[in-house]
């Protein structure tokens, strides 16, 4: 029972990762909406520093031009693991289910990420790797870059999908002009 559930989740996660890798995502609600795609650092027109706290971001609103490539420098100033994920509210909701599993299975443990657990092969080549290109997952004190091209003007939020964090308000709005 446990193992089956685990594998189903792992499979689902890999699938969504694959979908992102292809630059498209298959959620029914979005009418084929795409939030954008990863880009190269050299294309970035500006850098936005995003600070993560427990449990909120600074800033909470980011304005971009449609088609703009932004280099995000994300740093976790909190005591807990946080995510910075660019997506639509529906995408975040779907991702939250996966993140709950990661917490339940000990991949995220409050202030730590268990990388061994994350990389563990669940069979069929699935794992709980958190390697979506639209997202970074950081332990306290860590910092990472994410370069993103905002090629669409759909409703986009950046959000932390660690269970409870998004619901408590750890999200920000991306305003596209």
């Amino acid at each position: 029972m446990t193992v089956t559930k685990f594998m189903v989740t792992a499979a689902a996660m890999s699938l969504s990762a694959a979908a992102f890798g292809a630059g498209a995502h298959g959620h029914g609600h979005g009418n084929g909406a795409v939030t954008g795609e990863p880009a190269d650092a050299s294309e970035a027109t500006r850098t936005v520093a995003v600070a993560m706290y427990d449990n909120y971001y600074e800033p909470e609103i980011i304005e971009v031009q449609k088609g703009e490539v932004v280099r995000f420098v994300v740093e976790n100033h909190g005591q807990l693991v946080h995510e910075f994920n660019i997506g639509t509210p529906d995408m975040h909701e779907a991702h939250q289910a996966e993140m709950s599993m990661m917490v339940e299975h000990g991949v995220i443990q409050g202030g730590k990420i268990n990388h061994d657990m994350m990389a563990m092969d669940m069979g069929d080549g699935h794992s709980m790797k958190h390697d979506d290109p639209n997202s970074v997952l950081l332990e306290p004190g860590q910092s990472q870059e994410l370069i993103w091209r905002f090629s669409s003007d759909t409703n986009i939020e950046f959000a932390c999908n660690v269970p409870g964090h998004y619901q408590a308000g750890m999200y920000g709005d991306v305003t596209i002009k």
């Binding site: 446990t2 339940e104 299975h105 000990g106 443990q109």
Partner: peptide, 12 residues
């Protein structure tokens, strides 16, 4: 406490 598999393991 932040450990592995609590929900499912406990039940089994």
């Amino acid at each position: 406490q932040e450990s592995m598999n609590q929900g499912d393991m406990d039940h089994s």
